[in-house]
Design a binder for these strands. Structure first.
Lengths: 195, 195
DNA sequence: CCTACCGATCGGTAGG
DNA sequence: CCTACCGATCGGTAGG
């Protein structure tokens, strides 16, 4: 009946759940914990959501959609592979920085999705990774990147670095999201060593 | 009474538990799941272990000790900072490759330790990370690494890359542990770009 | 959003 | 290593 208020309350539930899932993990977070965070009874949660897993699905697939949109824009740019890779990294970091809590859940808790959701999620993820891999391969083909790199290893290393970020990064610290993305891109593309 | 047989059986329990914890996560793994894997009743597990958490403690602190020993050896070498960093990375990868299952648990499930174990674990980890950070700082001071890198960011990126490895690496694949360590070290120190 | 409640499952113990 | 069992907690429903 009250669509707007319901939506807003549902978003509060999802937000609180994300914080809880990030902190304790999905499986160790109980609906009673979540209710307590919101100051209501556990049974009352079910007027806003259908199930515990529905919350996880929302968090995971919403993040996946944002990552995809970010990469869509980058692929349209007519720039070199190394620039494209940098832009992809910066875009990925920006999406994460917009919601570090949901990003952490996306990365660490997706395995608790049941099928067919888990399967769908993993397909989205492998697709996203392969699009980055293609950019690296273009860079190898064009001579921008080293010929002897293992592109699968390179792309997995890249994603590892990016995906752990929500676990340690705090926007209150010295470095801002925009600069973080640029530093990360620079480090992964150019390495630590003085040329 | 039968010390050797007991120890061996206990190790089987811990090994199976590690596989389960890696696959489903600690909180979502039940002692009944574990018992089933071993073909015994859940209650029988408790003649080999004191509690579910004792298994997690064993896995986490044994891995932590191996990482520490590996880094001890590297620090004794009288080599340049970039060589030391490469050796540290290769050593870390070697330790992980020796037991990918325990490594995954070490990385993903340590947060389920209760205090004071969790606190102790986090102290060990921050100490290990700071030793790597010191190597990077030496490299910056000596001019081997770029002056403008954020060393905290660099070390967190390094560990992110390393720590996700057990999640995607399979020794049955094309690349062997030794080469994986070298490629990883090369990528992080020198970057992807052609010099 | 609440009270009252359900069946299932949890980690673990007693006693052999 | 087993049978038998415990109190606690789980996700979720009925009915208001």
């Amino acid at each position: 009946m009250n669509g707007v208020a319901n939506l807003s309350r549902k978003e509060q539930v999802i937000r609180s759940a994300a914080e809880l899932f990030k902190e304790k993990g999905y499986a160790a977070s109980s609906m009673r914990d979540l209710a307590q965070k919101l100051g209501i009874e556990a049974a009352s949660l079910y007027s806003h959501i259908k199930s515990k897993e529905e919350i996880l699905q929302t968090l995971c697939f919403d993040m996946a959609a944002e990552f995809r949109e970010s990469l869509d824009k980058v692929e349209k740019q007519g720039v070199s592979a190394s620039e494209k890779l940098s832009m992809g990294i910066i875009g990925h970091v920006n999406v994460m920085a917009r919601d570090l809590t949901a990003s952490a859940v996306f990365m660490n808790e997706h395995r608790h999705l049941s099928n067919p959701h888990l399967r769908d999620f993993l397909l989205l993820r492998i697709n996203y990774i392969n699009r980055f891999k293609a950019i690296i391969e273009q860079g190898v083909a064009s001579g921008e990147f080293k010929k002897n790199i293992d592109t699968k290893l390179a792309v997995m290393t890249l994603f590892s670095s990016l995906n752990w970020m929500p676990m340690w990064y705090s926007p209150e610290g010295s470095i801002e999201p925009k600069e973080l993305g640029q530093q990360l891109a620079n480090m992964l593309v150019n390495g630590l060593k003085q040329n």
